[in-house]
Design a protein around this nucleic acid. Sequence first.
RNA 1: GGGCUCGUAGCUCAGUCCGGCAGAGCAACUGGCUCUUAACCAGUAGGUCGAGGGUUCAAAUCCCUCCGAGCCCGCCA
Length: 494
Amino acid sequence: MHWAHPEANDAIEERGTEHVVACGISPSGPIHYGNFREVATADLLNRAIQRSEAESDLIWISDDFDPLRKVYPFLPEDFEEHVGKPLSEVPDPDGCHDFYSRHFEEPFLETLPVLGVEPEVKRASEMYASGGYSDAVATALYRTDEIAAIIEEVTGRQLPKGWRPFNPICEECGRFADPAGDEYHCGHGHTGNLSEARGKLPWRVDWPARWKILGVTVEPFGKDHAASGGSYDTGRRIARQVFGYEPPHPVVYEQIGLKGEGEMSSSAGVAVTPRQLLRVMEPELMRFVIASTRPKKHIELDLGHGLPRLYDEVDRAEEAWRNDDPGVEATAFALSTVNDVDEMDLPFSHAVNAVQVDPDDPLKVLRRTHHSDHGPRVEGRLRRARNWVEDYAPESFLFSVQEETPDVELTGEQKRVLEAVAEAVERGGGGDEVQNAIYETGNSLDMALGDAFAAVYRALLGQDDGPRAGPFVAALDRDFVIKRFRDVAGTSDG
RNA sequence: GGGCUCGUAGCUCAGUCCGGCAGAGCAACUGGCUCUUAACCAGUAGGUCGAGGGUUCAAAUCCCUCCGAGCCCGCCA
């Protein structure tokens, strides 16, 4: 059983057949694949609920009314002056959007439909500005003592004197200030009246308030919120006791790490955005990696050696899905589909070879090797293979067919291997025949087979190893191969 | 101090929610084969399921205690 279905069924048992699945992100920096796990998890739950014949909507909330916490490494130093202001009121560091949060939100939101996620988008700044939180703020302030008691009891910490469940924005400098009774004191010396100030609920109160305002019934969140005494612990009690709302069914998920670099974190500089990943991963694969892993399990994304394997895995799952296999892998793929996908027979590793054999026209290579050779999906996979070769492929996957005959020294035996291969190709032989010719010639000459294969790679690539020899030679232009081998072997007519 | 995850074959991990003969891939070994960007086929071997206790006709699986590793919370969100 795939994990999304028991979760969906639990939610339906707890809350009935009408659901709102919520997720959200604080756009304080580039929104990366680790953040996408939250949205993807929410989308998977949303789909699973719908597959169980219940109604469900998906909401994505931008926490763009949170303060800018510090000058992150990717910001200019003079952003110090904006620390403490709401993200929706800080300028765009690159100057291309109206303000800070939009700059990071937009590229992320643009990729969501490509990844098959189309949530209703809400923004905290707009919800506060339009009065959506008015009742909640009034309730929270009226019941300050109860909220304070819950937070102090659950977290075991002591709230300061004059604490209020409201973070006011200083009317003079535009930064969040500390409440002190019915007033607030800004760090820059201004004192104002709390009841007249703009502002927001602190996170631990904001979250439960939002559940009620939006009718949230299911919500995935990171394990940082899930720790004992964390914000879900306080939130569930505040929701029930203060707002009279049953908290959503929680689904806790783990972080995503980049192999060799640690957990993704935009402030630590370890972050790959969905847009960057789309250069090398198909949308279905980006979903599948998340869908096929239980949320509480850590994901370690390996874009190097691991990527061809991931493609093989998702291709297998896709095939199982096409065969109506009821297993988890097929279900994970079913939940990962984005658009109708053409059936295709082109392993990623072969695409990687094809774009290197003939960078100008890899389709020609695919025709020679009898793989799928047309359609948007093939083109997409070739494009991603090319990007992978440029950005992530380990050395051992790289080669380049030398346009000019390389100046290589070969033994007499090796030259006879090349001549034998040339003859096999001349006779119209394919991969098997080429592989055979190398093997048999090498054996009949009583030479080390490694040297026989090395001759082929040296003549074509100028290096001692390369892709599996038979199919590789067969993927090349026939006349080119014959000429090259005879040139190198010194058996050409000219 | 608290929470979560992990601990199962040499390695990487399924299986644990919902108890029912201990599993897969890779590695090893045997045989075959066309040594190839982690080649292919057939077969063999490989285990105190981290430790201990409990529940049960039956425990890798449920409960309790403990050990080890990692992450998170105990500022803000």
